[in-house]
């Protein structure tokens, strides 16, 4: 880690986040959009966990002696967020299945066309 600049982690997070963002706004397939959203989420998680890390720290499980502990609070928040994230992913995929059953496709433009022309 020494060779990298101090903000490298955050830059990686931004790159990941933007890849996810691009997938969400530019791709047409609903399943792929949802997994793009997943990438975006993981980027946010990595950002939080990076903020909590202390150099030479150890995991926040108390032991004897006076070690430096990494901040436990981001971990707690992200644990909750991961679980909520999987819940939204499940709901989104279920919606995609329903849309596929109603329109016969999961491509966004084809759905638009089918809605404009209900024949």
């Amino acid at each position: 880690m020494m060779l990298l600049p101090g903000l490298f982690n955050y830059w990686l997070v931004v790159v990941l986040m933007m890849i996810g963002f691009y997938v969400v706004i530019a791709q047409g397939n609903l399943v792929k959009k949802l997994f793009g959203l997943n990438i975006f989420q993981v980027a946010v998680f990595v950002f939080y966990i990076s903020m909590g890390k202390i150099e030479d720290g150890t995991a926040p499980i108390l032991v004897d002696g006076e070690p430096v502990y990494t901040n436990p609070l981001p971990s707690v928040l992200i644990l909750t967020a991961i679980v909520v994230g999987i819940a939204t992913l499940a709901l989104g995929l279920a919606l995609a299945v329903r849309i596929r059953n109603a329109f016969g496709t999961m491509e966004e433009d084809e759905i638009d066309a089918a809605e404009a022309d209900p024949s």
Partner: peptide, 19 residues
């Protein structure tokens, strides 16, 4: 794996199982 490196072992468990 990245979470383990950053000392967030509980998060790593959850991510591996759930994600």
């Amino acid at each position: 794996a990245l979470y383990v490196v950053q000392d967030a072992v509980d998060v790593a468990f959850t991510e591996a199982a759930v994600g």
